Amino acid sequence: MALQLFPDTSKSIALEDGTIYAYIFIPPSSPNQPTFLLLHGFPSSSFDWRRVIPLLQEDGYGIIAPDLLGYGDTDKPTEVSAYSMKRMADHLSELLQKENVQQVIGVGHDVGSGLLSYASLAHPSLFEGIVFSSLGYVPPGSFDVDQFNIITEQVLGYPTFGYWKFFDEDDAGRTLDANSDSFVSLFYPQYAEDWKTTMGPIGAAKSWVANAKVTPLPAWLSEDDVQKRNQVFNKGGYTAPLNWYKGVMRKVDEPYAATLATEESKSIGLPALVIVGEHDHICVADFQKPTAETYLRNYRIERLQCGHWIPLEKPAEFVALLKGFSKSSNLA
């Protein structure tokens, strides 16, 4: 969490609606250096950028890395309606305005890419460019998780989003809180392909956690890392973060999505980079391209030899792509 783990570079701020956000803020070394807005996914916080931030900072880039709503030292409302992607996108816009940051390069990972999708549609002038990692661009609109699971099972031989059904249960947060070590083993598997059987199939994730299964950590995650991330979730638990999933499944952004009636209205002309992991068995690399082709007018895709946790598994390669993107001639 920003304030506790990065006290020298973090701060908190109250927005107009009273919501308090905590975030890492490192100004650029010169006015010509871009600032990266880093949006983490689930189950994460600004702590998940710990290997990325030093590599950007050493070249003088600016950095804003919030604990997103429900996480870390940021507020954790319990009502699902608070987790409207449009509302949280407006929060990001206000946060940048309060820091007098005119433009950023937005970087999203996992469901942070979903938030970046909404933010770049609702506030395009804030962005020089946008980078999606693991999960690609997510156009606003209804998402039928049951239909998606049927399609992915037909194509891949297993459904990819079965765990969403567990996350939508009212007591899922309490279940995760009571079995934290098991949940860490589930979400940070020793072998990436384990997700084909532990996360994707309906009922598998709930069974794993309910039975308190624990496996060794992957090579790229240390015991110290786990202790610190557990420190993050000891403050508030998992109930609020799960509202990101509940909000999508319960269609809290339907009013905003209804204002975007055409495919063109959901399209983005900003320079875009999509970074995928070849061995990501949930946000499957090949599934990110069709949406990019449909909605991103100026994009390229880069594939890395890793699983889902790109900023943790391949930080140097990830940052090299970010730096190259920041220097590309097509940025505003």
Rank of each mutant, 00 (worst) to 15 (best):
E254M: 04
Q227E: 14
D73V: 00
V248E: 13
G307N: 10
A22L: 05
S44V: 00
G324R: 12
V145M: 10
G136E: 03
Y21I: 04
Y245M: 08
L156K: 08
L321A: 09
E169S: 08
V145T: 11
S10P: 10
K165I: 12
T239P: 01
Y21L: 12
S93Q: 13
G41L: 03
I20W: 00
F42M: 10
E302H: 12
G70S: 08
Y158H: 05
R303S: 13
S113Y: 01
C283F: 11
E79Y: 01
V104Y: 05
S185M: 02
W220L: 03
L156Y: 11
G60H: 05
D225Y: 13
R229H: 10
K76T: 09
H308E: 13
I20T: 15
P28G: 08
V131W: 01
Q305M: 08
T239F: 03
E302D: 11
V252S: 12
T294V: 12
F287R: 07
G72C: 05
A65Q: 09
P255Q: 06
L68C: 04
L273E: 04
H109N: 07
P140I: 09
L135R: 13
S134Q: 06
I301W: 06
R300V: 05
G237S: 11
Q147A: 13
A14Y: 07
A258C: 01
Y23E: 04
K327F: 00
S125N: 12
E317M: 07
G108D: 07
A210T: 13
Y299F: 15
P34R: 05
V131E: 05
V232F: 04
P271F: 01
W164S: 12
P315G: 12
K266M: 07
D17H: 12
P216E: 06
D286G: 10
P54W: 02
N179C: 05
K235A: 13
G277I: 02
S180I: 14
T78D: 07
Q288V: 02
I282V: 15
G106P: 11
R87P: 01
T291V: 15
P31L: 03
Q57E: 15
K323Y: 01
A332K: 14
K235H: 12
T35N: 08
L176E: 01
V104I: 09
P66R: 03
A292C: 07
A192P: 08
K266T: 10
D8Y: 00
A261E: 14
Q227Y: 09
Y163D: 11
S29M: 06
F148K: 13
S207A: 14
Q305D: 15
S30E: 12
D280G: 09
A332H: 12
A292H: 07
T175Y: 00
P31C: 04
D177C: 03
T259N: 10
